[in-house]
């Protein structure tokens, strides 16, 4: 049974950290109104471009490779998630555990080789 009380300081830390960061964001907003620095105009609030009006939708199409990377990441990160519990129980599972995990790794390596050969990892 997991002792959840040892995570309580982390929960408190989360509260303090959110509080501190929110303070850092919202306090200057108030201060700038008091000091008179807060003085927005249409040009200031427009999106950044190098001296001319922006002419394209910013959220335009982007390269499909970013999707591929994200999907591959999920595959290999899940693999790492399987490795974590295995890594701390290697003395208990012994050779059968080791051989099983190595088989699993080889299967994923085949997947990596396939992706590699298909050119999904290439950027030009």
């Amino acid at each position: 049974m997991v002792d959840l009380t040892q995570y309580l300081p982390i929960l408190l830390f989360l509260g303090v950290a959110v509080g501190l960061s929110a303070l850092f964001v919202f306090l200057p907003m108030g201060v700038s109104r008091l000091t008179g620095a807060h003085n927005p105009d249409a040009e200031k609030l427009s999106e950044y471009e190098c001296g001319f009006p922006a002419f394209e939708e910013p959220r335009d199409r982007f390269d499909v490779r970013f999707y591929l990377i994200a999907i591959l990441f999920i595959v290999f990160d899940l693999e790492a998630a399987f490795l974590f519990p295995w890594a701390v129980s290697l003395d208990l599972t012994g050779w059968p555990g080791w051989i099983t995990m190595m088989t699993f790794l080889v299967e994923l390596l085949i997947g990596l080789a396939y992706v590699w050969k298909k050119g999904a990892l290439d950027w030009e």
């Binding site: 982390i10 501190l20 700038s32 620095a37 427009s46």
Partner: peptide, 28 residues
Amino acid sequence: LQETIIPSAANKGLFIIAPILTFTVALL
């Protein structure tokens, strides 16, 4: 002491949340 500029085209809620999230996670 500088002015906080929130661009008129931005999604205001998310725009403010992003730095809070970044810093919170870095501390946590």
